[in-house]
Design a protein around this nucleic acid. Structure first.
Lengths: 350, 350
DNA sequence: AAAAAACACACAAACGTTTGTGTTATTCTG
DNA sequence: CAGAATAACACAAACGTTTGTGTGTTTTTT
């Protein structure tokens, strides 16, 4: 005998509102209203419809309803990479709030490439997402693709890596403050010749971290020679290499403040190979609070960016913008948290 | 004077195919065919249409075309958490292949909760995604929601955490083999009383890792007492706590093979606090190759799961299933890679 | 040069909803 | 109990595409 599944498991084409209407000898409009608890449908009929819908395993078609309503209850999220702790934490935060409000999220990885970013903006626009949350790619130096989003009257919220050139809602942490506090802390611990690994100047986050570094040094009257600021791409390998070059040039820094944890790690590993005592002879601080920073030895002083909260806020900003008349853009700046760990704590101060 | 933007920046309602048709005194069908390079449109007209589309910044509406075509070029991805290295790496892999084939991906976090998983399946089904890639939540012990996907004739590919109960395409790594090799390696390095942190038995991955552990021990005639296998939820805290309990019970293991890197780390940190020399007095190996494992000290021996490749394969499996007649489900098993690091390398063997 | 084939296009229906408007029956009001 | 208000529904149009079919026109074939 053929195995007979319950009616929930019939295959074939999905059941539509029309099908339900036909069976009940009524019309699609009534069924639609019944299902969504809109008025204009009698008690009895409503129950009848809902019962049948359940029985026939009716699945609402959000594509159709999206087309009709002009809303997709979908959010586009554009990030450089999904598998970076910072970004995946932000995404986790976004997803949480989005889920609570019945939004789905489409994620887009730019791989830090401008043309991918552009292409994804097109895709999201075509998908008629209700909003876009984005963090700039490293290559982004033009913003017309983002302006298109605004012109389409779709809420656009930037987080972390934001364009100075556009007047949109945005949420960042205070990178300047985070860097300033990290460097100040290092100085307080007796480090003096602190070098800095910086990212590209055209990205707000790296520019601000550099400024924070400079301000902290200046506030203590510590000189910053030109070659104490090393721009690289902030990967582990870049950090290791830059550190090597610094030593090869004959410089004798006693600490490093890196705009990225990975680059900090690269330098730290290199210095350990060279038998430098960390934090004794050389202090290291990073930025972002990647998970590994608390597990390595010595644990790495870093700046936490409240990534998950950033994601949550970001989505809340979108929700605010998506209802009613467009409010003026909100600019939120979260306070970073300096996490003082072993890599910057000298046993004896200066 | 009012600032005048180029035509690319007009606001108002999006341009539709109908609009283009009207302007060119032709019909939507012709415009549609012209834009998509379908035959039935003259050279001249085609150029005319494309030029106008560009000029008016026409954005195709994938919602409408999705409704008409019954395909959304969208993939649903269901994972326990997006901010775990393993899963975010898989997602990165999925995104890469999906992007190349012009698919968008909707990501869903179950937070290891069954009801969230169910709800997301409904959402994805309603969104009429073209396929679903999923890894089970810890709580999943019922599969009707997944069967619905199959009944809707939507390709469903499981990865890593898969249900034994369903006959779908799937891709896993050989957890048994990975565990076996890890434990064998530890035995080869002189460890004898190796304990095991295991996850829930109803999840294939943890069951297989445990089996691998048992097989390796057995192959060397090493006894495994009941209390040498500790089930916990595999978090860092759980690892620490379990380790503490083991010692408190008066057991004297000389090594740990943990089904998770985090739990391994918890145990490792605890043992270090208790002044055990690792790997000298106590060896530790984990599973998953989380990023931090190579940066900690001692670096952690672990098993790499080729997560990115898994994501890529997974999407390729979907692509294969989405064309033509449904092929029989593919069952792919990737070979894990044992990464031998310091945490299991005794200076002097035995 | 007539018949056949190919082409360029218009027309119309369809995908599955949602929503405004009309129609009839029921309930309410004074 | 007439008239108004309300309710329960049906009807039809619309969202923006895609695609099958029909109709002239041009090109090719012989």
């Amino acid at each position: 005998m053929v195995r007979q599944k319950t009616s929930a498991f019939q295959s074939s084409k999905p059941v539509t509102i029309k099908d339900l209407a036909e069976i009940l000898h009524t019309t699609p409009s009534t069924v639609s209203r019944a299902l969504r608890d809109k008025k204009g449908v009698g008690e009895k009929r409503r129950k009848q419809v809902k019962d049948l819908a359940r029985k026939m395993n009716y699945q609402p078609n959000t594509v159709a309803s999206g087309l009709r309503k002009g809303k997709s209850r979908t959010l586009g999220v554009i990030v450089p990479r999904v598998n970076r702790d910072f970004f995946s934490d932000v995404i986790a935060g976004i997803e949480e709030v989005a889920f609570d409000h019945k939004y789905s999220i489409i994620i887009c990885q730019t791989h830090d490439q401008l043309d991918r970013e552009k292409q994804y903006v097109e895709t999201l626009l075509s998908a008629r997402v209700d909003g876009i949350l984005a963090s700039l790619s490293l290559e982004t130096n033009t913003y017309d693709h983002f302006r298109k989003i605004l012109n389409a009257r779709i809420p656009l919220i930037f987080f972390d890596r934001i364009p100075a050139e556009m007047d949109t809602s945005r949420i960042v942490i205070d990178d300047f403050e985070g860097a300033y506090r990290a460097v100040k802390h290092m100085i307080d611990n007796g480090y003096r010749r602190i070098i800095h690994f910086a990212g590209p100047d055209y990205l707000n986050v790296y520019r601000n971290r550099k400024e924070g570094y400079l301000a902290a040094m200046k506030s203590c009257n510590l000189p910053v020679e030109e070659d104490m600021i090393i721009h690289n791409n902030l990967t582990l390998e870049a950090g290791r290499k830059s550190m090597e070059e610094v030593l090869n040039k004959g410089m004798v820094p006693d600490a490093l403040f890196s705009a990225s944890d990975y680059a900090a790690l690269g330098a730290l590993l290199f210095m350990q190979e060279k038998k430098f005592d960390i934090p004794g002879q050389f202090g290291v601080a990073g930025f972002s609070n990647e998970k590994f920073t608390s597990y390595i030895n010595p644990s790495l002083t870093t700046v936490d960016q409240h990534s998950r909260e950033m994601g949550r806020y970001c989505t809340e900003l979108f929700l605010k913008e998506s209802i009613g008349e467009k409010p003026p853009p909100s600019k939120i700046m979260l306070s970073p948290e300096l996490l003082i760990r072993k890599s910057t704590q000298r046993k004896s101060k200066q």
